[in-house]
């Protein structure tokens, strides 16, 4: 097998991880929908209250962590299909990965300031 530096690592890990994170996000989406529907009027107090509880804060963080990993695998798959030059792909991989790590830090900061 020809191993490529920006290849798929030829394993089940990413494939499985993408699916596990998908399930985490799907379950969270339902929990969020129930919470939003039972929240009452949309104002700052109610909206903040939806995320401020220990469970929702942790669940929302797990959602964001899953989102970033899921997006990493998905976007990398898109690069592998359309971006052929190795150099361009390495740069895109790096930019995407760093952006996603930054986004997760941002989400965590929002949640733990509540």
């Amino acid at each position: 097998m020809n191993r490529v530096v920006v290849g798929a690592h030829y394993g089940l890990k990413d494939w499985l991880g993408q699916r596990i994170t998908a399930v985490v996000m799907a379950v969270y989406t339902l929990i969020f929908a129930v919470g939003a529907l039972s929240m009452g009027e949309l104002n700052y107090e109610n909206w903040r209250g939806l995320f401020a509880g220990g469970f929702m804060r942790f669940a929302t963080f797990l959602f964001f962590a899953s989102l970033m990993y899921h997006a990493w695998v998905g976007v990398r798959d898109i690069y592998m299909d359309y971006i052929k030059p190795t150099g361009v792909r390495v740069v895109l991989h790096a930019v995407t990965l760093l952006a996603l790590i930054g986004y997760l830090g941002w989400a965590a900061q929002v949640l733990w300031r509540l």
Partner: peptide, 13 residues
């Protein structure tokens, strides 16, 4: 994503 996170941060800040 950056736009959505910005909206999320503003809505809860």
């Amino acid at each position: 994503l950056p736009l959505l996170l910005w909206l999320f941060a503003a809505s809860l800040g």
